[in-house]
Design a protein around this nucleic acid. Structure first.
Lengths: 137, 137
DNA sequence: CGGTATCCCATCAGATACTG
DNA sequence: CAGTATCTGATGGGATACCG
């Protein structure tokens, strides 16, 4: 499979990726690979926030309430290392640093969309399930 | 939703979910809610593994190499509490316990598919980006 | 078979202080 | 402005032993 293949989720591709196919470990590793990359507390949110275009450090901090300076820096560095975002330092005083999704990072937006969408549609059901479970003890 | 439906996300729904809309915090919470639920090391993999139908505890353990008994139990309990899987205890000796996706859990399969698919298509590019980043220092 | 209970360590992540 | 450095408590998760 090449990088230029269209993104379409075929049954075969899924079987290869999710643990019931001939080699169950392939899918397990694939899923955990991507989770190790963007399954943390802030990565997905950062990708989603950068969807609209480049933003500078302080703008990201404002767009993502609750993130600490330390975690913003760390998450940005990790995403940069993984090739999902670009970091541009402008030689000015005061310094200006801008971040934007790479093309590779852009391919992940569909995932972020799907996750956000699922949350909106189903969080009420999950809350209800929790309440029921906790009440039963 | 059936398993073969494409993942379709409307622009409006996305804007509501990903931090550039009128209330940025809504999307942030939505995404982190679902990540807190299935963003851990094993949940998504478990959901993917249960896609093909009900499995008992020991079968799950065999299907997911590397998971400890403790983490399998913990993850199953959490997913059960959140209403994503059902746990059925058969009153037999020796005991038999089976797990299966609920309807709500089934709606999450599309996410698992998308994540697995993305990993397969892009993990080579990510590896290359990492190597390049690390070489530059 | 399908779990619990306990111990232990690595990593995560917030707070705070400092810097080019 | 955009970080780095350090400290600290919280959480994650494996290993092991035991149980109904």
């Amino acid at each position: 499979m090449t990088l230029n293949d269209p993104i379409e989720v075929t049954q075969t591709a899924y079987e290869n990726s999710c643990g019931r196919a001939s080699d169950p470990e392939v899918g397990g590793r694939a899923i955990r690979e991507v989770l190790d990359r963007v399954g943390d507390k802030w990565s997905l949110l950062l990708i989603a926030t950068l969807r609209g275009g480049r933003l500078r450090f302080s703008e990201l901090q404002r767009h993502i309430p609750g993130i600490s300076q330390r975690m913003l820096t760390r998450t940005l560095r990790q995403l940069e290392r993984d090739g999902l975002i670009n970091r541009t330092v402008h030689a000015e005083v005061p310094p200006r640093v801008e971040y934007e999704l790479t093309q590779l990072g852009g391919t992940f937006i569909a995932i972020a969309e799907a996750v956000g969408q699922w949350a909106i549609e189903n969080h009420a059901a999950v809350e209800a399930a929790r309440a029921a479970y906790d009440e039963r003890g």
